[in-house]
Simulated assay, not measured.
Amino acid sequence: MKKVLLSFMLMVTCCLFASVAFANDKLFLSGDITLEEANKVIDAAKAKAQEQGTLMNIAVVDAGGNLKAFARMDGAFLGSIDISVKKAKTARYFNMSTTDLGAAAQPGQPLFGIEATNDGLAIFGGGELILDTDGVIIGAVGVSGSSVENDVAVSKAGASVLSKRASKKKN
């Protein structure tokens, strides 16, 4: 009897999942970055890195802080892979750039020690939020591989590409 009930429950669950999946041609949450958009962010960040003559790891997370796209430029530091992902997640988790969070996390500041939470955060520049045309956060980009100043420039170039495209369409 238990096996029959379990089989029935499994069948119902599968049918429910299938009906949701087939009811929507694509399962996509509005307010989330698409893969196409994430790749545009990476392309813009890579172009800025090449302009600077730097080699970067570039991570893009979705609105939920999950890795959506990643690129490691040939020769970029292996140790910067994890840092770039953490910068992107940190920016998204706290809805601010890692530069701003880092300033609030210094000794004597209100968020001192926050980097030890959430399985480790990156609280120095190179993580930026990605906004849609309405200013809604749809993800974040994290960049690592050079100086903090270069990381910030590359992450800002990546994060701004979608808003630049949107403003060009409006004009």
Rank of each mutant, 00 (worst) to 15 (best):
L10D: 07
V136W: 04
R72V: 10
D32V: 14
K26N: 11
K40F: 11
G65Y: 09
V148C: 03
F112D: 04
F77P: 14
E36N: 12
Y93T: 13
D119N: 08
E149R: 10
A159Y: 01
V141C: 03
A88D: 02
G158S: 08
G120V: 13
A21F: 12
G53S: 01
I33M: 02
G75T: 07
V152G: 03
S7C: 09
I81R: 00
Q50A: 13
L16G: 15
K164T: 08
S146E: 00
V41G: 01
A21W: 12
T133L: 09
A157E: 04
L129M: 10
D43C: 12
G65S: 11
K164I: 05
N24F: 06
A49P: 00
D74I: 08
P110T: 15
P107V: 15
L5S: 02
K89Q: 06
L10M: 14
F112E: 06
S160M: 13
A49Y: 03
F8E: 07
S155G: 00
K89R: 08
F28K: 10
L10S: 09
L121Y: 10
A159V: 10
E128G: 08
T117K: 14
A49L: 10
Q52P: 04
A63Q: 05
L6R: 03
D62K: 05
I130H: 00
S163R: 14
V41T: 06
A105F: 05
M56I: 11
L16D: 11
L67Y: 02
K164S: 09
K3H: 07
T90F: 13
D100H: 00
L35A: 12
S147P: 11
V154F: 07
L78P: 02
V4K: 07
V61E: 02
N150M: 15
G126Y: 02
I58Y: 00
V141T: 03
D82N: 09
E51W: 13
V141M: 07
Q50S: 04
L16C: 14
V20F: 00
T54D: 04
T117I: 15
K26T: 15
I42R: 01
S19L: 12
V60L: 07
A44V: 03
K2T: 11
V152L: 00
F22G: 14
D119W: 12
G79A: 01
L101Y: 05
A116I: 15
F28I: 15
G65Q: 11
A76Q: 03
I137P: 00
K164A: 09
F112H: 12
R165E: 09
G127R: 01
G139L: 04
I33R: 01
K164N: 11
L131S: 03
Q52D: 08
A116P: 14
V60D: 00
G120H: 05
R72G: 04
G158A: 08
V136E: 06
I137W: 08
K168A: 10
L162N: 09
T133I: 15
A105H: 04
S30R: 14
E115C: 12
